[in-house]
């Protein structure tokens, strides 16, 4: 147990998003350290699939490759109320049981349109954080929608 904690910390120190090998000790736990959420490896995998469905791999990386599911977990864990966290965890459970892991695009669109859908709260939270993680990812900010740290200019009459 101690060794495990030590190794975990090592991964933390390595910086950025904490990622463990998928074969991690065979323990059925999420791959990042969470303070409040209790998420197992299957649920994390399901979340990755949902995130991948929201932002799929095309000619550029999708949600899973960019680890957006881990970003969603991190944000829900640190920046949401307990009520939100309950909705989130319950959403993952319900999805797992009722939908048998089905994450097809048409199904997601259906949830988004139906505010009364039992998974609506969960889905919108997940979608918002996924989009935030995507647009604020190093990949997108460096390669797609470029973020300028030092613009060095202002033009109030730039031609469109």
């Amino acid at each position: 147990m101690q060794r495990r904690t030590a190794v975990k910390q090592l991964f933390f120190i390595a910086g950025g998003i904490v990622l463990f090998p998928s074969c991690w000790g065979g323990a059925n736990e999420a791959s990042i350290a969470l303070r409040k959420l209790h998420i197992n490896a299957e649920q994390e995998n399901l979340l990755a699939e949902i995130v991948e469905s929201i932002i799929p791999e095309t000619d550029s990386p999708g949600g899973r490759a960019l680890h957006l599911h881990l970003f969603v977990l991190k944000m829900i864990d640190d920046c949401h109320s307990e009520e939100d966290q309950q909705v989130f965890v319950q959403g993952l459970k319900d999805w797992d049981q009722e939908m048998n892991n089905f994450v097809g695009k048409s199904y997601l669109t259906e949830i988004e349109k139906d505010k009364a859908h039992p998974l609506f709260g969960f889905f919108m939270m997940t979608k918002r954080r996924t989009i935030q993680g995507y647009l604020n990812s190093e990949y997108v900010m460096r390669n797609k929608v470029i973020y300028e740290l030092v613009p060095g200019r202002y033009n109030g009459y730039a031609k469109v």
Partner: peptide
């Protein structure tokens, strides 16, 4: 940025913000 929908179309919207 239009954040409606999901999938490849959403991704395309996110990568091509509009004026």
């Amino acid at each position: 940025t239009d954040t409606s929908g999901v999938g490849a179309s959403l991704k395309d919207q996110l990568l091509h913000p509009k004026l």
